[in-house]
């Protein structure tokens, strides 16, 4: 907006760039609208792409105003972070690699730089070079911001999916009034046992369970770490005032446990889920009438 006729005492190059960006905002946005990055992401109308371009130019001008052209954390970027992330994500979905997206971002510089050179052609060469460098650095920072944002989106997505996967893999089943069970299938690492513990404890409280059964029939191996996790879970359940029974310790695993010299000590174990359930029912005093006579009454 400010009709800044150059000459006289020159300000900081960053401020020159700021004035240039404000002056040429419309032209830059128009040019960017033809670049693949904008053209292919904003497909509703060309005006939409130009609009998005203007927002980016605006953010760049604000960063230049703060003279923090090399700082990806500059406040000016915050307005377009989300938009940049969306653009990056759209390009990734279209099948572009991160490197390709990055070079599309790099392709935004030349048209702007050409405009800058044209605008400042009456300046001293070193002044022009300074301003051009400031612009190049600023655009490089923009690229960094876009890539950072995209990466952290991916990271967040991965984390979310990982958590979902862990939760899906940890169903808590109510077997009886006061008895809940978690059948564990697959490897039990630290991350997963955290989720198992939390899920199981919450279920114990929500369901007013007096017994929790941890069935490890589907756990392929038990090393000392897994054993430690199991015992932590058993201890935590006990602290809530319920009892935890571990079932499904296959002979191979039992051997490993002995071999490793691990002490499951006070942990109550049963061969299978059914035995564990039987134990809990007995303790609850539940009166199960078995079909076979004489099978029920051994308490």
């Amino acid at each position: 907006m400010p009709q800044h006729e150059t000459g006289g005492a020159p300000g900081a190059p960053a401020h020159e760039v700021r004035d240039f960006l404000r002056r040429r905002s419309e032209q830059i946005a128009q040019r960017w609208a033809d670049e693949p990055l904008f053209r292919t992401v904003f497909t509703v109308s060309r005006e939409e792409a130009v609009e998005a371009g203007r927002a980016v130019v605006d953010a760049l001008a604000r960063v230049a105003d703060s003279r923090r052209v090399e700082d990806p954390d500059a406040a000016g970027f915050s307005a377009v972070r989300e938009q940049l992330a969306r653009m990056g994500a759209a390009r990734s979905r279209a099948g572009l690699s991160a490197a390709q997206v990055s070079s599309e971002l790099a392709a935004l510089l030349p048209p702007v730089d050409r405009l800058l050179v044209a605008d400042l052609e009456r300046e001293r060469p070193e002044r022009l070079r300074e301003c051009s460098t400031a612009l190049t650095v600023l655009m490089g920072t923009l690229r960094l911001v876009a890539m950072q944002t995209a990466l952290s989106e991916i990271q967040a997505l991965t984390d979310r999916q990982r958590l979902q996967l862990l939760e899906v893999a940890t169903p808590v089943i109510k077997l009886w009034d006061g008895i809940v069970a978690v059948p564990l299938i697959g490897t039990l690492d630290s991350a997963r046992s955290q989720v198992v513990m939390e899920t199981l404890l919450n279920a114990v409280v929500d369901q007013h369970a007096r017994f929790a059964i941890l069935d490890i029939t589907g756990v392929p191996t038990v090393d000392s770490l897994v054993a430690q996790h199991l015992m932590q879970t058993v201890d935590a359940v006990r602290l809530l005032g319920a009892e935890c029974v571990v079932s499904g310790i296959r002979p191979a695993i039992a051997q490993t446990i002995v071999h490793l010299g691990l002490d499951l000590g006070t942990v109550k174990t049963r061969a299978g889920l059914a035995d564990a359930l039987g134990h809990c029912l007995d303790e609850l005093g539940a009166n199960i009438v078995a079909a076979a006579p004489g099978g029920a009454d051994r308490r």
Binding site: L201, Q232, A236, L239, L240
Partner: peptide, 19 residues
């Protein structure tokens, strides 16, 4: 009585199982 799950988890991780 009535220990909260988050407290129990923290205690066992702390190594305090209060046997």
């Amino acid at each position: 009585a009535g220990m909260r799950p988050a407290v129990a988890i923290t205690l066992v991780e702390l190594g305090l199982t209060l046997p």
